Amino acid sequence: MKLQPWRQYHAAVWLKTWRFDAANDIRILVLGQDGRQLSYSNLRVKRNQTWTRHHIVFNSLGNEKIRFYIGVWGGRGGKLWIDDAVLEETAFVNLLRRPGCPLIVRSEDGIVYNEGQDFQTLVDSKVGQVPYAGCYDVYHVPPELKLTPGSRIKEGQRILVDFYHTVTIYDGQVTCCLGADKVFEIIEEQVRRVHEAMRPRTYLLSYDEIRVANWCKACNSPGRSAGQLLAENVRKVAAIVRKTDPDARLCIWSDMFDPHHNARDRYYLVNGDLRGSWNGLDRDMIVVNWNRGKAAKSLAHFNSLGHEQVLAGYYDGDPKDIRNWLQVARNMPAVCGVMYTTWRDDFSKIEQFARYAWGIAQQRK
């Protein structure tokens, strides 16, 4: 399917289900010319639902052609109806207006028009506000660019507009900019509040699964890779914490600094290669490692960098699995602990987990 590069697109489809067991697996899938997935938004289809319209929004990036699919992979039981699919170019959905995200409106021959003089101030009032402040929806009717009285833009004239927008990942996930000054101001204020309220001895920096990054002018610099950007970001955040609390102990999730996990090229919608991000980690930072799938390589990577590690185990699986992980780590004295990790707030197996972990720990002594 042909389209224009570097444009925002909206796709929608009407879906109806009846006892459809694979409702969570229904997708609108968009692949670029190189096979890269361009949208990761979940449709949130229910097992039983009447006709409901579902949406995704994506940027075509540098693609002139895409592969476009609507369907289900791994269907089991029930019925699914699909109707009235639409793919259309759009603009200004979840429009970003901040330093590093300029809005430029110009004529085909290069005349740049002025906001407030040639066109009204353009703001997406729903960005980060649906269903409430701090939350992002996949799609809403975008704002329109409207001319001012006396505008130099003529009725029916073709204009070119450069703008920046965010996209949601899975169920409304949106990543902050890694380079914007305002982000660091907010972090500094939050660290100050946490320090004053709780006086913690240890801070866990929540760097994990950063799936959109390095696109805007605040973070994308010529000659700097995505990995170098992330390294600079984590250095600044660590410095902010230590400025507030010089004695603080810092921990950090492993995946974005692990070449055997997410610190790699072509990670989701990150612009560029994330390898080298681990160069931003201070040596005394404790890595909370959750890469059980490639445990030996991951543990060795951080061990070679001189980091102590905590194994983040369980993840609502079999509590016995921590035994195998600790066996892999038996020759790495820098593994200093384990953590019972649950997504479902299920602490019913924490004692079993502890017994398995302590049993192996005793064997290591």
Rank of each mutant, 00 (worst) to 15 (best):
V45H: 08
S41W: 01
N114G: 05
R53D: 02
I111R: 14
N63C: 03
D109C: 09
G71K: 08
V57K: 03
Y136H: 11
I26A: 00
Q117N: 14
C135P: 10
G116P: 05
V72S: 04
S125D: 15
V127K: 08
C135Q: 14
G100L: 06
V112I: 12
V123Y: 12
S60L: 02
V57R: 00
N24S: 14
Y40Q: 05
I26K: 00
N48W: 08
D83Y: 01
V30G: 01
I82C: 05
F68D: 01
G35L: 09
Q120K: 12
A23T: 04
D25C: 04
P131V: 02
S125H: 15
E89K: 10
I70K: 05
P99L: 06
N63A: 06
C101W: 02
E108H: 08
Q120T: 13
S41D: 14
A133G: 07
V57M: 06
R98H: 13
C101I: 02
P102C: 00
Q117A: 03
D124C: 04
L87E: 02
N42G: 10
W51D: 10
V93A: 05
D84M: 06
V112N: 05
N48L: 06
R27H: 09
S60I: 00
S41P: 03
P131A: 08
L29T: 10
